[in-house]
């Protein structure tokens, strides 16, 4: 070990930042645990209950299946209608949000802001508000899904719009096309496939969402969770859960395949 190596050897950087981050994290977790009454003891004491619950859930009561088929169809219907309405509304909103199509900053910035605000509200909250407005039934659920789909599809679409090739647009301008013609011939062909893919994606999410909207009275199969759990008929609840899982997985699979074909 020579002394001249000692001289050029760099000093270890301070680890203060790491300790500080760790301390913040620990405090955060600790305060959170206190605030939510979470503890391992609570979990352990709840464990036997959980096992009982699981035991009562199996075997599922298959005969209950007939009773919930209609509700499941309503769920899919809600998702379909909600997604479609949302998709239709998303077209003008996306065009207004895209800075390369709506050049005016005074227009696309406020529209985007509104879009972002809409996207902060979870669909179940929207549904419970719409239930308060329109009363119980699938209609508030459909509206909630419409608003949610609008937010999601419009955001993804305007992001796709902003990455389109400007060439065809310039070509359309040079042949003397007006604004609408430019959009129809220069923009839509470029984002059509993406748009369809986003709609399918929104549909996948909406089927899952629609399955629980019934919890706040907004229609669909979710209503039956409260019915069965309220009467402690856990084997029926299990039937609902399995049925929903099957439907969601089938729709996901079909939609994913379709989306792969589109892009």
């Amino acid at each position: 070990m020579s002394t001249n190596t000692e001289k050029i050897r760099p000093k270890a950087p301070r680890k203060l930042k790491h300790y500080f981050t760790a301390a913040i994290l620990i405090i955060l977790l600790w305060r959170s645990a206190v605030l939510t009454d979470s503890s391992l003891g609570e979990l352990l004491s709840g464990l036997p209950n959980m096992l009982d619950l699981l035991k009562e859930m199996f075997p599922p009561k298959w005969s209950y299946f007939e009773k919930i088929v209609d509700a499941m169809l309503e769920t899919i219907r809600m998702a379909l209608v909600g997604t479609t309405l949302g998709a239709i509304l998303a077209v003008p909103v996306a065009l207004l949000s895209a800075s390369n199509i709506t050049v005016s900053r005074w227009l696309h910035h406020p529209v985007r802001l509104l879009l972002n605000l809409i996207r902060t509200i979870p669909d179940l909250l929207l549904a419970s508000i719409f239930v308060a407005i329109f009363g119980l039934g699938p209609l508030p659920g459909i509206f909630a899904l419409t608003v949610f789909s609008l937010g999601l599809i419009a955001k993804l679409t305007y992001e796709a719009l902003e990455t389109i090739d400007q060439g065809p647009l310039e070509a359309m301008t040079s042949v003397g096309a007006n604004k609408i013609q430019r959009i129809v011939f220069g923009v839509i062909p470029q984002v059509q496939a993406h748009f369809m893919s986003y709609v399918l994606y929104a549909f996948e999410i909406n089927v899952r969402a629609a399955a629980v909207l019934g919890l706040v009275g907004a229609g669909g199969i979710g209503h039956y969770y409260e019915v069965t759990l309220g009467f402690l008929e856990y084997n029926k609840t299990c039937t609902i859960i399995l049925f929903t899982l099957a439907v969601v997985l089938i729709i996901d699979y079909a939609s994913t395949k379709l989306r792969e074909k589109l892009l």
Partner: peptide, 14 residues
């Protein structure tokens, strides 16, 4: 919903 049945209503179930 299921956790509420197990540990009771409240944030811990959440």
């Amino acid at each position: 919903l299921l956790f509420i049945k197990a540990v009771g209503p409240g944030s811990f179930a959440g």
